[in-house]
Design a protein around this nucleic acid. Structure first.
Lengths: 214, 214
DNA sequence: GGCTTGCACGTACGGCGTACGTCCGTCAAT
DNA sequence: ATTGACGGACGTACGCCGTACGTGCAAGCC
């Protein structure tokens, strides 16, 4: 049985699989090797160390997002589409999301979304300074939203679970929180995300545009 | 020499100190114990496990932020002030920031900022549903911004450092990125943060307000 | 004095990342 | 056909990690 030869790609795939099945904490070189039916140290023939492997995971996930950009559409639609495309990560690879947003990628995988976004914003008439500013703002919002969605950051209902009975929160100390507890306890991530995106788009749409494209 | 008795508070303080000095990776029970001149297992008399200790760190940092809320100020000013207060975390405890935003806190420490924010938004005339929505949106933006600021998330200039010469980015493939490289490479976090906050405030200020406060 | 209680501490176990050395199959040059 | 170099798979070993468990000691109570 000529088992498929080991390769960086296969290793990364196994890592992603493992993360999605058992969470990021379950990832160890030994575990991945076991998953592949291979000795631990064999991995190091294809990957310099664990950190690089995790970067590989982040890149792989990132490069899977499907940008279907229509250059003829209105720029607001294009921005909306790109934001949503990025959010696919949270759906397709929820437990890898943290990895994707928290690693500095020095490869082209990380540059493509940036390039697309900047092109869209420039085509909308923003100069370089504003395009970068707006992009950074969107990224901050999207990253924060994804983290909430995959449960890294709280909904900022610490009443997420675990304290179903709102007895734990003193209504005298926290009247608003306890009054709005039902609203805080549930979160429609789709709606929540879109609400923010629309608000942001609307906000930047009225941003005064300078002339000198520089 | 009656050395100060060990206590949860002292342990948490040592942990924060260690994180800020050497980064979150340097934190281990052994290391903290050594820092306190104490046996490793003594820590477990005051803290059930490492995870709980890290929660303690997050709570301690979170509860240090100074909210100076002026109920008479215009709500837009109050929102601005609260957003900035939260951002103090990144300044006062940069290397603990990740911990603060990524841990689900089931204590009052995490509820106080939420309570303040909700109260402010309600006083501005938002009903419960909108207040929660807007709050979530702000939190997402702030969390994302803080992570960028403390270097967890890239500026989304992967050209942050390490690739000073923009030869690594192919101008043919990434015209915008390479054209805007100087802008992407530097980031004035103060200005960037305020830009977003102002945009958000402005956006929600024009949000239609429903009547029925329910 | 005896007894309980609480805390500091040592030892030990299983798991981690990875440096290093070994072994073996393949293939080019002889 | 023989040899030699080479690349990849693997085992061993080291120094870390979190923490379960047991021991010993000092203070407070009867």
């Amino acid at each position: 049985m000529p088992t498929e030869p080991l390769s960086r790609t296969r290793i990364v795939a196994a890592a992603i699989d493992l993360i999605e099945r058992e969470g990021a904490d379950a990832v160890s070189m030994r575990r991945i090797a076991a998953e592949l039916g291979v000795g631990v140290m064999s991995l190091y023939n294809h990957v310099p160390n664990k950190d690089a492997l995790l970067n590989g995971v982040a890149e792989a996930v990132l490069s899977q997002i499907e940008f279907t950009d229509d250059p003829d559409a209105h720029w607001t639609d294009r921005v909306r589409m790109q934001a949503r495309a990025f959010r696919q990560i949270a759906h397709g690879h929820p437990r890898s999301t943290m990895l994707v947003v928290s690693r500095q990628l020095h490869s082209n995988a990380g540059l493509l979304p940036v390039e697309r976004a900047l092109a869209t914003l420039r085509s909308a008439g923003f100069d370089g300074v504003d395009a970068v500013r707006v992009l950074r703002m969107f990224i901050a919002y999207i990253v924060g939203s994804l983290l909430r969605e995959v449960g890294v950051t709280p909904t900022f209902a610490p009443l997420h679970r675990h304290m179903v009975n709102p007895d734990d929160v003193d209504p005298a100390l926290f009247p608003e929180v306890s009054g709005l507890a039902p609203l805080l306890a549930s979160c429609d991530h789709d709606a929540e995300f879109d609400f923010g995106v629309e608000l942001l788009i609307q906000a930047i749409a009225v941003l005064p545009k300078r002339e000198g494209t520089r």
